[in-house]
């Protein structure tokens, strides 16, 4: 007997993500899902951001990694709250993992929650984790053809951080080409060339965070 079903296979993840979104909306917390390939600089960008914006914003971090709590310890060293999720081989975070992890955070008065996803340009794209926006990092050491090769990730991201611009003299990465292709995939994507090492370009990224937070609070 053939039974029509037509059910989204990832509906359980989507349902919890939607619950989380409501929960965060109620608290007025801006939630960002940071994605990139391994080593593009997510944790370094967070260390900078948490340090530089500490005087004006309360922020916390959920760290997703295959193994170790190295990244959670790195961001906790800035003074921000951090909780580590080890996916034990899982190539992406799921909404239920985030739901569990935030129980150990004090969310009262929080402004921004950053969720650093597992380093991977494919799988995290399919799994919402309750975020307002997805942010993709791409480092200039990886090649400017990444938007073409991983279209979905760039299509669904609100912002693209092009990190490690201090290395531009040593690599053949064309910033315009990467931005142009990202805009083909997503016309509205905000592009931020930065160096988390030299701090170049970070102010524009910080302004975007402030604007997104203000917009979220205004719409509440």
């Amino acid at each position: 007997m053939q039974i029509p079903v037509v059910r989204n296979i990832l509906e359980a993840n989507a349902r919890i993500a939607a619950d989380l979104k409501d929960f965060f909306a109620g608290k007025g917390i801006l939630v960002l899902n940071l994605m990139s390939s391994p080593g593009a600089g997510k944790t370094t960008l967070l260390e900078r951001t948490l340090t530089d914006l500490a005087p004006e914003l309360r922020m916390a971090v959920v760290e997703g990694d295959l193994q170790t709590d190295n990244d959670a310890r790195r961001v906790a060293a800035t003074g921000a709250q951090a909780v580590q999720i080890n996916t034990e081989g899982g190539c992406h975070l799921t909404s239920s993992q985030v739901q569990e992890a935030i129980k150990s955070l004090d969310l009262e008065g929080l402004d921004i929650l950053f969720i650093e996803n597992v380093g991977n340009l494919v799988c995290p794209a399919e799994f919402d984790v309750g975020e307002d926006f997805k942010v993709t990092l791409l480092s200039v050491a990886e090649g400017d053809d990444k938007p073409e090769k991983y279209p979905l990730m760039f299509h669904i991201s609100a912002a693209l951080v092009l990190n490690k611009v201090d290395l531009l003299p040593y690599v053949d990465f064309d910033l315009d080409r990467a931005s142009r292709h990202a805009r083909v995939l997503n016309e509205c994507i905000s592009v931020f060339p930065v160096s988390a090492r030299s701090r170049e370009g970070l102010d524009a990224w910080y302004d975007w965070l402030r604007q997104r937070l203000a917009a979220k609070r205004a719409s509440a």
Binding site: N8, I9, R183
Partner: peptide, 21 residues
Amino acid sequence: EELGHAVVSGRELYIEYLELE
């Protein structure tokens, strides 16, 4: 036009039907 196309389909992932006994 290069920019701003909407994705009408291509992101689906669903069970269409099951054959059960």
